[in-house]
């Protein structure tokens, strides 16, 4: 099956490995992620001011692009893109006047009719492939790998866009179990990584990284799995700075869920792009017998 796919800026730059592993693993599941022929910035952060329509132009314009291609569904990977696109979509559904205003402003574009759905790839796989079938397609199970699933904020909050129960979600855990991994109870799964403060308030992020990774360690995790290039930067790349500040800090590989899925489904290792991971996961994966 083919589905419209919105990549977002970061997946073309610092998080290329998220995209390549997603495309590869999706293909192995029979899903063709068809990148929109035209797209722009998703807006990155959803505007919360009631009197601000300007900042909803970007996400709605992207949804018009989806509409132009005759698609009723668009899949995203990045949590920020997912959150912003989906919240904006929910907003214009709830507020027809706002939609009218946005459509009027973009008078050169066709009108957006808010009848399409924004999906995160996890939900899309669960709904369209199913975890039973996913399990069947696993050729290289992640046996013995203890995984802490990290959702962060934007896949679970606010309620209008949540992938699953906001306090005790299972959707990514169940996926990891289908891939053969052992999921540990990780209560920091829905905490915030510090997000964009990585730029300007680095110390704040170091504190978060220290807490989140150390807690995962304490809970017995081998790796942390996530779905956001922002979280990934903070929790993986910022381990360097964390180690500088806290010499006894123990590092841990941080992976996109798609990287693990690609391995488990027997995809090309090159598509995992592990060279972009700061903490190299390969030794661990070899140690576990998952990689030869």
């Amino acid at each position: 099956m083919e589905v419209s796919y919105f990549p977002g800026c970061t997946l073309k730059q610092t998080a290329k490995n998220f995209e390549t592993s997603a495309i590869s693993s999706s293909k192995l599941l029979g899903i063709e992620l068809k990148e929109l022929s035209r797209w722009n910035c998703c807006g990155t952060v959803y505007s919360l001011a009631t009197d601000d329509s300007m900042h909803h132009l970007a996400p709605i314009r992207n949804l018009i692009r989806v509409q132009e291609e005759g698609s009723k569904e668009v899949v995203t990977l990045c949590s920020m893109c997912y959150n912003t696109l989906k919240q904006a979509n929910e907003l214009v559904r709830a507020e027809p006047d706002r939609l009218q205003k946005l459509n009027d402003f973009m008078y050169l574009e066709e009108d957006y009719k808010p009848d399409l759905e924004v999906y995160h790839l996890v939900t899309y796989i669960k709904d369209n492939v199913g975890y039973e079938k996913l399990k069947d397609k696993v050729t290289n199970p992640l046996s013995g790998l203890k995984v802490a699933v990290y959702y962060g904020c934007l896949l679970l909050r606010p309620d209008s866009i949540k992938l699953d129960d906001r306090e005790n979600p299972r959707i990514m855990e169940d996926m990891m179990e289908a891939l053969g991994a052992e999921v540990i109870d990780f209560p920091y799964h829905n905490e915030c990584c510090g997000s964009y403060h990585t730029l300007g308030k680095r110390d704040l992020v170091i504190e978060r990284t220290n807490k989140i990774i150390s807690e995962a360690k304490l809970d017995g995790a081998d790796v942390l799995v996530l779905s956001c290039p922002e979280c990934d930067f903070n929790l993986d790349h910022r381990q360097k700075n964390t180690l500088e500040k806290y010499p006894s800090f123990e590092t841990m590989p941080v992976l996109y869920f798609t990287q693990l899925m690609n391995i488990a489904l027997g995809g090309d290792l090159a598509d995992c792009g592990f060279e972009l991971n700061y903490i190299d996961p390969i030794p661990l994966l070899k140690d576990k017998g998952i990689l030869k």
Binding site: C9, T10, T14, C41, T44, V45, Y196, L199, E230
Partner: peptide, 16 residues
């Protein structure tokens, strides 16, 4: 300098 992800840069500009 830091090779910060693009979304962080835009978020900072948008929020701050």
């Amino acid at each position: 300098e830091m090779d910060i992800p693009q979304i962080a840069v835009i978020s900072v500009l948008r929020k701050l």
